[in-house]
Simulated scan of single mutants.
Amino acid sequence: MLLVCAFKFDKKKRKKICVWSNIGMDVCCMQSVPVYLSEMAPARLRGMLNIGFQLMITIGILAAALINYGTNKIKAGYGWRISLALAAVPAGIITLGSLFLPDTPNSLIERGHPEAARRMLNRIRGSDVDISEEYADLVVASEESKLVQHPWRNILQRKYRPQLTMAIMIPFFQQLTGINVIMFYAPVLFETLGFKGDASLMSAVITGLVNVFATLVSVFTVDRLGRRKLFLQGGSQMLVSQLVVGTLIAVKFGTSGVGEMPKGYAAAVVLFICLYVAGFAWSWGPLGWLVPSEIFPLEIRPAGQSINVSVNMLFTFVIAQAFLTMLCHMKFGLFYFFAGWVVIMTVFIALFLPETKNVPIEEMVLVWKGHWFWRRYIGDADVHVGANNGKGAAIA
């Protein structure tokens, strides 16, 4: 559980007023859940089921905002303790629920249980589905992975350059969208814009609601529209929203950072912030976890996902630590700063990320082999797709 606390000190009452922003996500879940879902889901539903993970996160963020709003009304001053203690509830649910989760077919094959893997694959695909080709692909992938003795060293090989690049750049860019600035410091930010007390927390609840409903949009469209279209549309929407918010704040506060913001003007700022959150919630938010989890071959999949999570956590920490200092020095320019990064990351996706929808996870190498830039890193000897012989990749 990542907790970010913004303290203000009331010298008259000699007590701390704490505004908590809870992000219901720990490193263990981010490492294992996206990969688990990608291995268990059929290719045609992999995006929808994997983004269900992000949907639960957004519901957790909304629940945290509602809890903060309620506990902030406790006059005795111990509301923050209740808010913090309630984080144990989802942690307990995750712990107990994990005891009932079955192993993935990939994991069973890797640990020498081929028949159990076949039964599990048949169970999750349905008894009326022919699993022989998919099972053969899993066996081939497992046999190749056993030849890799040092996944952390092998991931540096030339043939894995596309996947390694995405595992580093996607989480890096995801944090530089500026979303954590909004979600971590929403109450403080809205209070700075002229909202007071409970109104600032209510604004955080509003952004949480937008986050949930926009993620639902991604759940129902990611396997139809594809990853690239959502990335590009969401990036464009975030760019426009950030430029508008930065400009509106610049007009009223200027470089001094001091000014008054009428209610109607503040409502316009909130509207475009909500549009920004929506753009993130159906693009870079869920896809930042989905795409890295589905592109790695089995032999380097744990190492690849570890890199993805580590980069994400590193830049989450960096942005959280640097935000207040940057805000003091850059003021409204901070929104232009993040808008500039959104331009870079949108161009990056347009040029270097191939479409991965409907491609079986063990045939993903064919996607990179067919890309105009990445194909130079993958030789014919690096392409092994088992009995299916690449048929699934043609769907994309």
Rank of each mutant, 00 (worst) to 15 (best):
S107F: 14
F231K: 00
A117W: 00
A136W: 00
D103T: 08
T221V: 06
H150C: 06
M48P: 00
F335M: 12
Y276F: 15
F352T: 13
R224I: 11
G390Q: 06
W341R: 00
F172K: 09
M1N: 10
S200T: 08
G304P: 01
V367I: 12
W374L: 04
R228H: 05
F253Y: 13
V311A: 01
T71Q: 04
R118C: 02
R375A: 04
F335H: 08
V212E: 05
L275E: 08
D130H: 07
I395A: 14
F337H: 06
N308M: 08
L66H: 06
G24T: 12
L298D: 05
G208I: 04
L275H: 09
L156A: 11
A91K: 00
K12V: 12
L62G: 06
G208C: 07
I94Q: 13
N358M: 10
S306R: 01
F373N: 03
F220T: 07
G392Y: 06
A281K: 03
R158H: 13
M202E: 08
M202L: 15
Q157K: 15
L209S: 09
K8W: 10
I249W: 02
I67E: 11
S21F: 02
V4E: 11
A250C: 12
V19D: 12
L209M: 14
M330V: 13
T192P: 00
I82L: 10
K331F: 04
R119C: 02
C18K: 12
L314C: 10
A116Q: 08
M313H: 06
E144P: 00
I206V: 15
K12E: 13
D198M: 09
